[in-house]
Computed example of a mutant assay.
Amino acid sequence: MKIAVIGAGGFVGSRLVKKLQSEGHEVGAHDRSTGVDLLTGEGVPEALAGAEAVVNTIDAPSFDEDAAPFFRTTTQTLLRAADEARVGKVVLLSIVGIDQVPDVAYYRAKLEQERLVEAGPVPYTIVRATQFMDFVEPIMSWTTSGDTVRLPTTRLQPVAVEDVVGTLAEAAATPPRNGIVNVAGPDVFALDDLGRLTLRVHPDGREVTVDENAGLFGQVPHDAIVAPPDAHLGTTSYEQWLQRSHHA
């Protein structure tokens, strides 16, 4: 099967390209470094020529209000080109719970992106993932001051990127759902407890204190970004992932 991956040089896209290739698919790996730019439209028709599916894994360059026009333009460009190229389906990587978090600009922008895909001319599958395990440490760094990490008790369900990539690969290779597939890690944590667990395995002198208003996740309702009951659950726990990364 011929599958185009947009954002192929990114955190998820690069792994997805390898996964699809290992499964025997013909993969077109595209991003701005290969001359494909969804903002300008440059190289997009050529990237999609002959493709049976296209997976969009690109991310906005910022988490603020600028995310909305970025996602709007790039998604409209991709949908228009996919329709003209008669691509069989579009697969979009998105985020669990974004329709429950109206106060976060980035989540509003991703929700608008989803709605463009849903209303677009090409059959689709939206893969919503919970927070990547790799991003827990950056989340902690955003609210670190000296030796103190301030974190709210917002509940997260961190997922291994490999589990998300597997779900994206399956979505690309199977008929479009014209709906949403959720993927999450096996365990739910309060964010402050997740921080403490991280520092037990990777101690660096910092300690976690609860601050319900700290950082982006202080704006997220308590259970908003925990996966719904029908989600696909990954097989890698956060503790397993921590131990593996600790010995890497």
Rank of each mutant, 00 (worst) to 15 (best):
P102V: 12
S237Q: 01
Q219P: 10
V159T: 07
R155H: 12
I139F: 07
A82T: 06
V17W: 00
E42S: 14
P121K: 06
D59F: 15
D64E: 00
D103P: 15
H247L: 15
V181A: 11
L111N: 08
V87M: 03
V164A: 03
L242K: 09
F189M: 08
S94P: 13
L156F: 10
L168K: 02
V91M: 01
A160H: 03
G97E: 14
L93D: 02
L93W: 04
T236D: 03
L168I: 03
A105V: 12
H30E: 00
E42N: 13
V91A: 00
R72Q: 13
A49K: 14
A214K: 03
E26L: 15
E162L: 10
D163W: 05
V220H: 06
A60D: 11
V208F: 07
D204S: 11
I95C: 07
T198H: 14
V183I: 09
V220T: 06
A29I: 05
T236Y: 00
A81K: 04
F63R: 02
A173M: 07
V164W: 01
H247G: 15
A129K: 07
S14R: 04
L79P: 09
E162M: 12
D204M: 11
Q21K: 13
T174L: 10
E118S: 13
Q240G: 12
T144E: 09
P176Q: 11
V136M: 10
V188T: 11
V91I: 07
S237L: 00
P221S: 06
P61F: 09
D59A: 15
P138I: 02
G146C: 06
T174F: 11
Y106P: 09
T198V: 11
H232P: 13
P229I: 00
Y124R: 02
A224G: 05
S237V: 01
D134T: 13
V183R: 06
R80H: 10
T130E: 06
L78N: 10
T144W: 11
R196S: 12
P221W: 02
P123Q: 01
I98K: 15
A4K: 02
P158F: 01
E118A: 13
L38W: 00
R108W: 08
V96G: 13
E52N: 11
F132D: 05
G195Q: 04
D223N: 12
K110F: 13
P45H: 07
A53N: 02
L111P: 05
T75S: 08
L93C: 01
H30Y: 07
V17M: 01
V44D: 07
L93V: 01
G35F: 00
K18M: 13
T34S: 03
V90A: 05
L216G: 08
